[in-house]
Design a protein around this nucleic acid. Structure first.
Lengths: 222, 222
DNA sequence: AAAAGTGTTAAAAAAGTCTTAACCCAATTC
DNA sequence: GAATTGGGTTAAGACTTTTTTAACACTTTT
């Protein structure tokens, strides 16, 4: 059973949505402002429907606030058709965008899709692998009990690998995931991997953590 | 580097899309009909842009055909606004739907999003043949339960043969599929086949996997 | 038996990786 | 506002692994 949080200031629309979702076997939480939405969120929500035009804080702020705190797909609803707006929201991490007025069936389809995407994804805020512990909320990493001091890129890279520790990440995937659209030299990746390996080795000489997959990319070892 | 397949019958739009994607650092494959799209797909495509209104087979058929064969996100483009259509397509497995005319920036954003979704997925693209298991995502191959260590070319070659295990691959086909445009000596293929056979034999002495078809090429045995 | 095609091996060539150090840029400090 | 600091990137060279070439033995076909 999925729990969906509706953040929408218009009481009628909010209630209508609640009813729609409940008849389609979702559990529903309601909030009527952005700040309330952040408060109501109990960490146990599968998906958020976020109306953009909220009183008080603007939608973008709420979106980033929610995404920083929880890893939940967010579908943004809005009457605004402007493309730059949409692109911005995707950039910020929205999972989908639907313009009002929308058809209920389409909304349901997009909700289903977003939940499908979410499945199989690691979304806990603390990940562990061997004796590595990585906390996505406060950007700390410990290994063998010792805190290691990773830079932002190093952290992103290690986090990415640890989110699917069995999987091989091709170099282009890592560039996509860590460097987004920036185009940097191939070697940059090597250098960062090298630095991470050194820092990990400082904490635990015995273990080998990152494995090179020749001419493909990297993965976590074993 | 992601490869995107465009299936769109309107030559101008197709070319425009190609240019747009290429300037945004994607590799592009073009097809101008659904059937061509299915043919052109070489199993190495990261995402498909599918126009709905195609001559010949309809979009839905193409969509299911492509999804059955490959696990690739498909973004459907169409001028049709009808909601039931959209819902149907989502139901069939489309990853997103964008109505024409669309803004280039929005398209790029949705492509990025679809690729992001795909990356986090534990998409089980595993092929099996006799006691060989090959995982296209992890680049791992096991035979008789033992993991074998193939190099990239060896992996590509075996993967190619296993994707159609009943079919005979001529040498020029294999060169085309594994070496693309590079021109290498005929013997290179023999050497690689020999190495693969050895590695397979190490794992299972009893079986013979790759069959030589004299003066033609190779195929999987039996 | 000759010709054409294939298999295997070892060595050369190419491709990919690792590491160190230097450079650049932006933020912070003095 | 110049100097310092720190992260991020690039460049260079040493190193490793993979791929290709080449030579020769072997097999199949004619």
């Amino acid at each position: 059973m999925y729990k969906i949080l509706i953040i929408e200031d218009d009481k009628d629309i909010n209630n209508m949505l609640k009813q729609l979702l409940e008849t389609n076997h979702y559990q529903v939480l309601q909030a009527f402002s952005g700040t309330e939405g952040v408060l109501v969120h109990n960490g146990n929500v599968s998906l958020i429907l976020l109306d953009l035009m909220l009183p008080g804080k603007n939608g973008e702020e709420i979106l980033t606030e929610l995404l920083n705190k929880y890893q939940v797909p967010i579908i943004v609803m809005s009457a605004i058709h402007e493309v730059d707006k949409k692109v911005d929201l995707f950039e910020l991490g929205a999972d989908d965008y639907i313009t009002k007025p929308f058809d209920n069936k389409e909304l349901l389809a997009r909700i289903k899709l977003a939940l499908k995407h979410q499945n199989g994804k690691e979304n806990k805020s603390i990940i562990s692998f061997k004796d590595i512990l990585i906390n996505k909320l406060d950007y700390t990493v410990t290994c063998n009990g010792k805190l290691l001091n990773l830079t932002k890129q190093e952290f992103e890279l290690l986090k990415t690998l640890l989110e699917n520790p069995t999987r091989v990440f091709t170099k282009s995937m890592l560039f996509e995931l860590v460097w987004k659209d920036e185009f940097v030299d191939d070697n940059t990746l090597n250098v960062h991997i090298s630095k991470i390996r050194n820092k990990l080795k400082e904490c635990n000489q015995e273990e080998d953590y990152i494995e090179t997959v020749w001419s493909i990319g990297y993965k976590m070892k074993n």
